[in-house]
């Protein structure tokens, strides 16, 4: 079954977390599809100039509003006669960056906040009340307010998104950390004189990070949509830059006579969001030592 039985005298190799994430994702067909979709989107974004048949802003006004299947334009053309497939490929760049980077930065800030808040009750009270203040605003409204204060631009929009995301992720981490805090292994860590910060970031962090990973994957969808909303209001990505959210909102005026202009980037966003959600589920399983062995075993049985 395993290589351990073949050579019982030798220590079985240490498996890293990455190995289990890799095996876990490959072992789960749904996660495999999700990871494949994300990989294709990332590759398309990275190699856009080589893949895209047309430059993203090259307009051919004679063919404007033509539906998918037009010769030379697989997914049709938009209201200015720009090739939608090319814009989709180029747009994947900003869409992925605007969706993923704020979530990563937000998680990097929220995880320490949540852990420290759970460990030091007074600090935790202050942090969580601050988060409550941010919670009082709807996510989109807060992002609009911050982006408007800082002025338009992609960087400012991402800062606004990070600030918007922090309360959600902090609360997820805080709740998970409060549960872990009362576990016996944390008390054991105190009994063996582990310094507070080591308890938090060596002992507790691996146990709370799963909740944050799953949540982060779920929230990427909302962030993509919020980023699109900000761009639509002129606070984020500026036209004519290709970005899926802008493409969707630009296409809305033609929803009745050329629905594909809005539908294609909209469906792309939906697929992206779903892929991240499904991947998040699988990541949670592969990050947990209690469930991931089963994942690897079923993967082995299948092959």
């Amino acid at each position: 079954m395993t290589d351990r039985s073949a050579a019982p005298a030798r220590r079985a190799p240490r498996r890293s977390n990455l190995y289990f994430v890799w095996r876990g994702v490959l072992g789960d067909p749904v996660a495999r599809i999700a990871a494949g979709i994300i990989a294709i989107m990332v590759l398309a974004a990275a190699f856009a100039p080589w893949i895209a048949p047309w430059p993203p802003n090259a307009a051919n006004p004679e063919l404007r509003l033509m539906p998918p299947g037009t010769p030379g334009h697989l997914l049709g053309l938009d209201n200015q006669g720009r090739d939608i497939l090319s814009r989709l490929i180029y747009g994947a760049r900003l869409t992925l960056v605007c969706g993923i980077v704020p979530v990563l930065i937000g998680a990097a800030i929220s995880i320490p906040l949540g852990l420290l808040g759970a460990w030091y009750p007074l600090l935790g009270g202050v942090i969580m009340r601050l988060m409550d203040v941010l919670f009082a605003f709807p996510m989109a409204l807060l992002a609009i307010m911050l982006a408007a204060l800082m002025g338009p631009g992609v960087a400012n929009m991402m800062i606004a998104l990070v600030v918007t995301l922090i309360p959600y992720n902090t609360r997820v981490v805080y709740a998970a950390a409060c549960l872990e805090r009362d576990q016996a292994y944390v008390e054991a860590a105190r009994a063996m004189a582990t310094p507070d910060l080591k308890i938090l970031f060596i002992e507790m962090l691996p146990n709370v990070v799963a909740a944050s990973v799953v949540y982060s994957c779920t929230i990427i969808g909302a962030v993509v949509i919020t980023a699109a909303g900000l761009s639509f209001l002129g606070l984020g990505v500026q036209p004519p830059t290709a970005e899926w959210g802008i493409m969707t909102s630009e296409g809305r005026s033609y929803i009745f006579n050329a629905p594909h202009i809005a539908a294609i980037p909209g469906i792309s966003i939906t697929i992206l969001v779903m892929a991240f959600n499904l991947l998040g589920d699988s990541l949670r399983d592969s990050l947990d030592p209690r469930t991931r062995l089963r994942l690897v075993r079923t993967a082995k049985d299948r092959t």
């Binding site: 016996a184 292994y185 008390e187 009994a191 002992e203 691996p206 030592p289 209690r290």
Partner: peptide, 17 residues
Amino acid sequence: AQIVFQDPLQSLNPRRT
């Protein structure tokens, strides 16, 4: 001075070997 807990599984960090 050290301690041994009641629930052996919970007293070990599940994410650490």
